[in-house]
């Protein structure tokens, strides 16, 4: 029997942002920081299925909406990785999260509440995420008959927000992405795909897809891991 999902909000910098919760009554409450940008859309269905499996294993979970994403009233162009790290910390505190897990780019902003146990799947470098968005922008411009270079885009991004692959990114966001790597934390488990988690890297695909077997594998790993490190 699966609980009904509950949509709540957390407050960050005077704004309300959304968080979807499943299994609110369970002792363990795992905060999930999804991949960033397009990769979040491609993995959301798989992550929510993971939350259902966790609930069945009597583990609660929360899927954070970062400011500027999904139904947020904030603009993406007002965000930076620092903002998002602050949002994750606020959400973890206000929703009494006991553990934090992150995927891909989510691992770049999951470290605001460093004392909680962390689990990461396939953490991505900010520079790789940025490079893919820049390549997508250049390819789109090329199809429209316009020649754009990476150097031109990065120069323009120093002064004002630039549009990359449908994302309007502020100078701070571009600069922070270019340098960001997931930080070391006191209690940290890192998994690569194939290491206990069998599935497809859905975050790389062009279209959102599903992988129930992968959701089940992740949920099983979360449940065992979170039981082994407190909460």
């Amino acid at each position: 029997m699966t609980s009904r999902p509950v949509w709540q909000s957390y407050s960050v910098n005077g704004h309300d942002e959304g968080v979807m919760r499943l299994g609110i009554g369970h002792a363990r409450q795992i905060l999930i920081v999804p991949p960033l940008f397009d990769e979040a859309n491609r993995t959301r269905r798989m992550l929510v299925q993971t939350m259902r499996f966790l609930d069945q294993a009597c583990v609660g979970s929360l899927l954070i909406d970062l400011p500027g994403c999904n139904e947020s009233r904030q603009g993406l162009q007002q965000q930076s990785l620092d903002n998002w790290r602050h949002a994750v910390r606020e959400c973890a505190g206000q929703c009494a999260a006991t553990h934090i897990v992150s995927l891909r780019g989510g691992s770049l902003v999951d470290d605001g509440e460093a004392d909680l146990p962390h689990w990461r799947l396939a953490p991505a470098k900010g520079a790789s995420l940025l490079k893919t968005m820049i390549r997508t922008r250049i390819a789109g411009d090329k199809e429209a008959g316009k020649a754009t270079t990476e150097a031109e885009l990065l120069e323009a991004a120093k002064a004002s927000p630039i549009e990359l692959a449908g994302n309007l990114l502020a100078p701070d966001m571009v600069a922070q992405l270019a340098a960001a790597e997931a930080r070391e934390l006191p209690v940290l488990t890192v998994r690569a795909l194939g290491q206990g988690i069998i599935g497809s890297p859905l975050w790389l695909r062009a279209e959102p897809q599903d992988d129930p077997a992968m959701s089940a594998a992740i949920a099983t790993d979360f449940a065992a891991w979170s039981a082994s490190c407190g909460g």
Binding site: S128, K131, R135, I138, A139, L204, A206
Partner: peptide, 17 residues
């Protein structure tokens, strides 16, 4: 059909990594 100019962007970055 899966390989279009947008997919190439992701393919190149993943190849680098």
């Amino acid at each position: 059909p899966e390989l279009d100019s947008m997919a190439v962007a992701g393919l190149l970055t993943e190849m680098e990594d």
